Simulated assay, not measured.
Amino acid sequence: MAAVGRLSQKLLKSAALTQTRQLSAAVAHSEQAAKTWKILSFVVALPGVAVCMLNMYLRAQQHSHEQPEFISYSHLRIRSKRFPWGDGSKTLFHNPHVNALPDGYEQHDH
């Protein structure tokens, strides 16, 4: 009986040691993965965001800021009931330079 008890203790110690090694390997792997993702964030993601910002800035510089011509299409700008804010004819995020009312733009570019 004593031999079986010692054998089971050795097996338990061996299993615990194996599990500890596996956990330490997993921790080392997760630390390496964290380093990899941190490096990728600085080397790939941040420059990618910077390039996208530069692209949008350059496109905004080339964009024409003229007001588009107003064409009164019958299927656009239909107001079946008034909006509950303001004077009732403007949308919540109304921009007088870009968004036309049913009868035309509020402001005209000169």
Rank of each mutant, 00 (worst) to 15 (best):
K10H: 09
P84Q: 05
R79P: 00
R82F: 07
P47G: 01
V49S: 03
Q19Y: 06
Q19D: 05
L7A: 13
A50W: 05
A100I: 02
Q9V: 04
S30Q: 13
V51A: 15
S41H: 10
Q32I: 02
K81D: 02
H65E: 12
F42I: 01
L23H: 08
L46W: 07
Q67A: 01
K81H: 09
A16M: 07
S30W: 09
A25T: 06
L23F: 04
K35H: 06
F93R: 08
A50K: 07
W37D: 05
S64F: 01
R6Q: 10
L54Y: 09
D103G: 03
R79L: 15
G86V: 00
Q32S: 14
L92T: 00
G86F: 00
K35S: 09
Q67P: 03
S64D: 15
E106S: 10
S74N: 07
T18H: 11
M53Y: 08
V4K: 15
A34Y: 10
L23G: 02
A25G: 01
A33F: 06
I39M: 09
G5K: 14
A60F: 07
K38Y: 13
P102C: 05
S8I: 07
A100P: 02
Q22F: 06
A34F: 09
A45Q: 09
Q61C: 14
H65I: 10
I78C: 09
D87I: 00
A3R: 11
D103E: 15
S14Y: 11
S64T: 05
H63N: 04
A16N: 07
A26H: 07
T91I: 04
T18V: 04
K38N: 12
N95V: 02
Q19C: 06
I39N: 05
E31A: 14
M1K: 12
T36P: 00
A45T: 11
F83I: 00
K35A: 10
V43W: 06
N55R: 03
V98M: 08
P84C: 01
A45D: 11
N95S: 07
A100T: 00
N95Q: 05
Y73C: 05
V49R: 03
M1D: 12
M1T: 12
A60H: 06
S24I: 03
T20G: 02
M1V: 12
H94Q: 03
D103Q: 13
R21W: 02
S30M: 12
S30L: 14
H110E: 13
L12N: 06
E69D: 05
M53I: 11
R21N: 10
R82G: 00
W37K: 06
P68F: 01
L17V: 01
K38T: 14
Q107A: 05
A16S: 12
M53E: 02
L101A: 00
V49Y: 05
D109M: 12
H29E: 12
L54N: 04
F70M: 04
G5A: 13
A33Y: 07
F70T: 04
K38D: 14
M53D: 10
E66R: 10
I78A: 08
L12Q: 13
R59K: 15
R82I: 06
L92K: 11
R77A: 09
I78W: 06
H63I: 02
G86S: 00
A50Q: 10
N55C: 10
